[in-house]
Amino acid sequence: MQRQHDHTTDTAYKTRRDEIATLSADLTPDDPIPVVEYTEREHELWRMVCAELATRHRTAAAAEYLESAEQLAIPLDHVPQLRDVSERMKSISGFRFQAAPALVPLKEFCGGLASSRFHSTQYLRHPGTPFYTEDPDMLHDLVGHGNILASDRFARLYRLAGEAASRVRSTEALQFVGKVFWFTLECGVVRERGERKAYGATLLSSCGELDHFRDTEIRPLNVASLVDVEYVISTYQSILFEADSMDQVEDTVSAFWSSCDDDSISALHHA
């Protein structure tokens, strides 16, 4: 299993990452997305990872993801400017990107989703571990989330997740809303024509996860059953939840996110 490179020991990488992150520090949602002048090494990393992912997506990605990605048409031969992808995505589904210096707190992240904004980084993963990263990076945010956010169906689901997280008050409820997001929009799988396909952003932006996900323990998608399941983001997933169709994904999570509150989530935990 490929583990995360400790980028804090790589001074050059840390300096470059901090340099890019600083561009988006203290921005408001209405501020323009900064332009980043990417290096040839960064363009090379982007090309390599995108080429490997594209090969796997042809057999492992859900049809709706592939159709949505074709609509968004993210460049595969160079690192695009986040503002350019954001403008195109907004014209398709109404969602747009907001530049973020790093992973943002769950409440803030979900608040953005409720307003059709997705917080995205602008730096790339460490070149020493190109095919798996536990940190969000621009490849994860664009290839994983951006591509599916060009789908009207998934844009609605992301908004519903954000509205649910903004509505609940307790830490327990917020964490459970986030857990449902994790096992669906981040790590969701679906059955298509008898085959297991990935639609979650974490799976679809990681060659390592795509090589691994069909060998994990697979359980039927059921929100109540998530109560007793723990997860870690620093390794490949050991348990995944599969829907019978994209319609089931939509029906299951939209029913939960559109109606959940602190009391209903507390009742799930104490059932």
Rank of each mutant, 00 (worst) to 15 (best):
M1P: 06
M1N: 09
Q2E: 15
Q4I: 07
Q4C: 10
H5I: 15
H5R: 12
H5L: 13
D6L: 07
D6E: 12
D6V: 03
H7K: 10
H7M: 11
T8A: 11
T8P: 02
T11I: 14
A12F: 07
T15W: 01
D18E: 13
A21W: 03
A21Q: 03
T22W: 09
L23A: 09
A25H: 13
D26T: 07
T28M: 14
P29R: 06
D30P: 05
P32Y: 07
P34F: 05
E40S: 10
L45C: 09
R56P: 04
A63W: 08
E64T: 09
Y65V: 06
L66K: 09
E67C: 04
S68W: 05
S68E: 02
A73S: 11
I74V: 10
L76S: 13
D77I: 00
V79C: 02
P80F: 00
P80Q: 00
Q81S: 02
Q81A: 01
L82R: 00
L82A: 03
D84A: 06
E87V: 03
S91C: 08
I92E: 04
S93G: 04
S93A: 04
F97P: 02
Q98G: 14
A99I: 09
A100I: 06
L103G: 11
L103R: 09
K107V: 12
G112M: 10
L113Q: 09
S115N: 15
S116I: 02
S116L: 14
T121H: 05
Y123S: 05
L124D: 06
Y132N: 01
Y132V: 06
Y132I: 05
D135Q: 11
H140Y: 10
S151N: 09
D152S: 15
D152Y: 12
R153I: 11
F154A: 05
A155R: 07
A155Y: 07
A161Y: 13
E163F: 11
A164C: 02
A164K: 01
A165T: 05
S166L: 10
R169E: 15
E172M: 11
Q175S: 12
F176G: 01
K179F: 00
V180C: 01
V180P: 01
W182S: 00
F183H: 01
T184S: 04
L185T: 00
E186C: 01
E186S: 00
C187R: 05
V189K: 00
V189Y: 00
V190F: 02
R191H: 08
E195T: 03
E195D: 10
A198Y: 00
G200T: 02
A201C: 06
L203M: 08
L204A: 08
S205Q: 09
S205H: 07
C207V: 15
C207P: 13
C207E: 12
C207Y: 15
L210P: 08
R214P: 09
I218V: 15
L221S: 12
A224G: 12
A224V: 11
S225W: 10
I233S: 13
I233L: 14
Y236T: 12
Q237P: 05
S238N: 14
I239E: 15
L240W: 03
F241H: 11
E242G: 05
D244H: 09
S245W: 03
S245I: 04
V249P: 01
E250P: 07
V253M: 00
V253I: 14
V253F: 02
S254V: 02
W257C: 04
D262H: 03
D262C: 05
D263F: 10
D263T: 13
S264M: 06
S264D: 11
L268W: 06
L268Q: 05
